[in-house]
Amino acid sequence: MKNTCKRLRKLLLATSILALSAAGVKAEPLKIAYSDWPGWTPWEIAIKKGWFEEAGVEVDFQWMDYVGSLDAYAAGKLDGCHMTNGDALVIGTDKPSVCILINDYSNGNDMFIAKEGFADVKSLKGKKVGLEEGFVPHLLVLRALEDNGMSEDDIEIVNTPTDQTPQVLKTGAVEAICAWQPSSGTALREVPGSKAIYTSKDCPGLIYDCLFVTPESLKERRDDWMKVVKVWYKVVDFMKNEDNIDEVLEILAGRVSVTPDEYEPFLAGTYILKLDEALPIWKEAEGLGSIYGSSKISDDFNVKYKVYEEPKKYSSYLDPSLTAEYAESVK
C-alpha cells in the first residue's frame, strides 16, 4: 500500500512537471538573432542594462554570424532575425517574414574595397571580386557596377563569407571584396593601399537594416514585439544623447571586439534612425527614401540577376503598424 502511494505520488510529480513545462512553452523567451552590423549591436545596451526585463518581455538574443543567423531563421529556429530589407526577400522561407522595425540605413559601412592599383569600379573590369553571393554585399556591388555602366558579367564573383573577406583580399586571391564594418575596416587596415571605391553612402536607402519576425510569432505575441520596439527606441534615445557616448562606445565596441576608438567611425557609417526619422521611411513611396521603394529596387535587382525568378510581393514583408502604434503612444 505504502509503495503504491509512493508510486502514485511520483507519477503525480512527473505529470505536474510535464504540465508545467508545457505551460512554459507559451512563455518561452522570444528568440532573436543579431549579428555584428553596427545597426544591431546597439541591442547590447538594452541587454546589458536589463531594459527587456524592465519592459516585461523575455528575450533570448542570440549572437551569430549574419548569414548563419539567416540560415537559423530560415530553419525555423528563431522568432526574429535582423537582416536587410533586400536579404529578407532572398532567404528561403515559405512565408514572408515581417519587418516590424527599421533600425538604420547603411551610410558608408558597407564598402566595396579594391586593393592598390584599382582606383575605381571601372578599373575592376574582368577582375575577381570576393563577396557573399545572394546577400547584401552582392546587391551593393551590382548597384556599383550599374552606376558605372557595367554589369555582373564584367567581373568574376568569388563567393566568400563576409567575415573572411579581409583574409581573402590579403592573400591576393581577389582584386576586390565587399564587406561591412568591422570586416571592411579590418581589410582597409590589413591590406595597405586598399581603398573603398564605392560604399553604401553612394546610395543611401539602398540598404535598410531591420528586425524581421515570423508571421506566426507576430500574430501570437504582438504585445511582446511591441515591447521590443519600445526598448529599441529607448536604446536609440540613449545613443543619441552625446553625454552617453563613452559608455555607448564601450558597450558596442566590446560586443564586436574592437576598441572604442576604432568603433567610433562606425557610428557615422550606420545611420541609426530616431523614431521621427523612421516614420517617413515607413510611408509607401517610390525611390530609396521609402523602405517600400527600396525593397522594390532590391526585388527588381534580384529578379534581373536571377537570384530568384518571380518578383515578390514585397509589401507583405513590411508592417509599419507597430512603429506607428508606438509613435502614437508617445505623442
Binding site: L188, R189, G193, K195, E262, E264, P265
Partner: peptide, 8 residues
C-alpha cells in the same frame, strides 16, 4: 584616403 580606417 590612404589611411581610411582607425589604427589603434
Amino acid at each position: 584616403d590612404e589611411f581610411s580606417t582607425i589604427y589603434r
